[in-house]
C-alpha cells in the first residue's frame, strides 16, 4: 500500500490490533472519515470502537438536548446535570470521545441529517445513521449512492433486547484468502429502500422474525409520524392491526411476527446496555472491515436477540438480472 508509514507512536499504540489486521489496514483506517448520526447507546459503543481503532476522523450529528433517558446507556457523559444541562448530545459526546484517542479528530456537525446534500456526504467514507425515521434512512442512503465515490452506508437500531444492523456497500470488491490463494470477490448490495421493498414471500426461508417485526414498527412510526423509537406498549393494538394488514398484503401468516416479540419491542424505549455493546461491537467490526478491505463483510442485515442469544446474518437483497 502506498502512503506514508505509521509513526512510532501509532505502532506502539496500535500494536495489538496491527497483529490482527496488518499495517496496511491500519493506514487505511487512519485515512478514513466517518459520519455518525443519532447518538444513543449502540452508536456510542460504535463510536468508542472506531475511535480506539484509530480512524482518521469522526463527525457527530445529534442536536438533541441531553436528558436522563438519553443517557441510559451512555458512558461518555458524566451524570451531572450541571455539566450537561442545555448542551447537545453531539457536543458532549465529542468532548469525551476526543479523550479516548488523541490521534483521531472528533467534531460536531449541527443541523438536520435529512437537510444535507450529496456534496456533504461526499466528505465521508462511512455514514452510520440511527434513531431516525424511515424516510430519512432512505433519503440518506440514496444520497450516499449518488456520490461520486463509494460511501459505505449503515443503519443501526436497538429496541429492548434486540438489535438490527443494515449495510449497503453498493458494489464491493475485495480479496479473500482461499486455500493459500487470494480470490477476488464482488458483492452487490441493495439500498435500504430496495431491500425492504422485497415481497415478504420472496425472503430467504426462515428469515429472522425480527426483520419482519422491525419493518412493522418502522412503518407504524412512519404512518403515525412518531419520533423514531417513540412507541409504547399502548400502541400494541394499532401495531397488531398494521401487522395484519401487512401480512395480508404479503400473503404471509401473522404467526411469523409473534405477539410476544412485538410486545417486547414496544415495551420500552430504554436501551439494554449489553445489547448496545454487542451490536455496537459488530457494527464497529464491519466498518473496520469495509475500510480496511480485510475480511468478509456482512451482507446485508444483522440481527441479535438476547432472548435466544443468536447473532444472525440475513441476506435480503434484490437479485439483479444479468446484463
Amino acid at each position: 500500500m502506498d502512503g506514508e508509514e505509521l509513526t512510532e507512536q501509532e505502532t506502539a499504540l496500535y500494536d495489538r490490533q496491527i497483529r490482527v489486521w496488518g499495517a496496511d489496514a491500519q493506514r487505511r483506517l487512519s485515512k478514513s472519515h466517518i459520519l455518525v448520526s443519532g447518538l444513543k447507546g449502540t452508536v456510542i459503543e460504535f463510536c468508542k470502537n472506531i475511535v480506539l481503532a484509530g480512524v482518521g476522523s469522526v463527525t457527530l450529528i445529534d442536536d438533541r438536548v441531553v436528558t436522563e433517558e438519553l443517557l441510559a446507556a451512555n458512558f461518555l457523559i458524566p451524570h451531572d446535570e450541571n455539566m450537561y444541562a442545555g448542551k447537545s448530545l453531539a457536543v458532549l459526546c465529542c468532548d469525551s470521545l476526543k479523550d479516548f484517542n488523541p490521534m483521531v479528530r472528533v467534531s460536531v456537525q449541527k443541523g438536520d441529517l435529512s437537510s444535507f446534500g450529496v456534496d456533504f456526504f461526499e466528505k465521508f467514507n462511512v455514514v452510520v445513521v440511527s434513531s431516525c425515521s424511515l424516510s430519512t434512512k432512505k433519503l440518506v442512503n440514496e444520497k450516499c449512492r449518488k456520490a461520486s465515490k463509494r460511501i459505505a452506508f449503515y443503519t443501526v437500531d436497538c429496541r429492548d433486547s434486540c438489535g438490527e444492523i443494515f449495510v449497503d456497500l453498493q458494489k464491493y470488491l475485495y480479496s479473500k484468502k482461499e486455500v493459500d490463494e487470494m480470490v477476488e470477490c464482488l458483492l452487490e448490495y441493495s439500498s435500504f429502500e430496495e431491500a425492504i421493498a422485497i415481497p415478504w414471500r420472496s425472503l430467504p426461508r426462515r428469515v429472522s422474525k425480527l426483520y419482519l417485526a422491525m419493518r412493522v414498527i418502522e412503518r407504524f412510526e412512519e404512518l403515525e409520524s412518531r419520533n423514531p423509537g417513540d412507541t409504547s406498549i399502548a400502541d400494541l393494538p394499532d401495531v397488531q392491526k398494521l401487522r395484519k394488514e401487512l401480512c395480508e398484503a404479503h400473503s404471509l401468516s401473522e404467526s411469523m411476527i409473534p405477539d410476544a416479540l412485538l410486545e417486547r419491542l414496544l415495551a420500552s424505549t430504554t436501551e439494554f446496555p449489553p445489547v448496545c455493546a454487542i451490536i455496537g461491537g459488530i457494527l464497529g467490526q464491519e466498518v473496520i472491515k469495509a475500510i480496511s478491505g480485510k475480511g468478509d463483510p456482512l451482507k446485508n442485515f444483522f440481527f441479535f436477540d438476547s432472548m435466544d442469544g443468536k447473532g444472525i446474518i440475513e441476506d435480503i437483497s434484490i437479485v439483479k438480472a444479468e446484463g
Binding site: D15, R16, Q17, R19, V20, W21, E45, K48, N49, L52, A53, P273, P274, V275, C276, A277, I278, G280, G281, I282, G284, Q285, I288, S306, G309
Partner: peptide, 23 residues
C-alpha cells in the same frame, strides 16, 4: 509477537464478549 506470545486483540470483540457475559 512470537517471542512475547502476544495475543491479537481488538476492542470490538471484547465489547461483544462483555455484553454476552452480562446477559
Amino acid at each position: 509477537g512470537i517471542a512475547g506470545n502476544i495475543v491479537h486483540a481488538v476492542a470490538t470483540t471484547n465489547a461483544i464478549i462483555a455484553g454476552l457475559i452480562v446477559i
